[in-house]
Design a protein around this nucleic acid. Sequence first.
DNA 1: CTTGGTTCCTGCGTGC
DNA 2: TGCACGCAGGAACCAA
Length: 278
Amino acid sequence: MPELPEVETIRRLLGAQVAGKRIVSVRFGTKLVAMHPGPAGVRRELLGATVREVGRRGKYILFHLSSGRDLVLHLGMSGQVRNSDRSAMQKHEHMRIEFSDGQVLSFVDARRFGRVCMTEGGVLPRPISGMARMGPEPIEPGYNAAYLGALLGGRKARVKNLLLDQRVACGVGNIYSDEALHRAGVRPDRRAGSLKPPEVARLATALGDVLREGIRWCGTTMKDGGYRLVDGGAGSFQKRLRVYGREGQRCRRRGCEGVVRRQTLGGRSTHFCPVCQK
DNA sequence: CTTGGTTCCTGCGTGC
DNA sequence: TGCACGCAGGAACCAA
């Protein structure tokens, strides 16, 4: 499940690998992921273009092309960008890009929640329209208690569910929302509007902290793992998770005797410590 | 506007 | 061994 730290890790790897390179070949699999403006249109935009640099916004990867257009990739929950070769297309491979120096990148996504889109001049096509409404990146200084407080204040929804809203905390998904709430000492089922200013402040800080730490450890690769590095390697933040995936195990907060509980919130598996999260 | 539910999709773990 | 089944979840979309 690629979230901000996983996508940022991939962005850095890709930036080092393909910046300055020219695209000479584009191929598609038989089962397409949602794509704009369709396979033929994407190929037309990409062929002959040079990648200036690779950027990121929330969970979106942006290949900035010399043409001024962007190739935008969203990995959904099982999408991977992998170093590849010129052998036959594999089972869930949806797109393959070959560069002038022979390097090949493949977009593989078993569950096909991923998205592939071309954009121009900041206009975002349907499948990725949400990117336009995202707020500041939680790892940037502009993301603070004032911003978060304004979005949580007066809201009746559970704070965990609001953290999954990309307008509130872009780049955050199920793993890092649970981890941030644990670090902030806030129960995920609290009504967002009931959080006191110090709790909002702790949460804003915790979000940035846990996401930056996730990046430092190259993201979280779970056992079933949709997330892999570009070369197939694994991240290592899973070893440092404090609540996610740790149901029935001891809380990792120093001195806390709690046992991690799991409950479904808004259709999503949620992990928390009933003792140190209030 | 807010809120919560539904939908898409496949691999994997579980129970019989 | 095999099969039905439930679960995982990002985010667009829809209904009230």
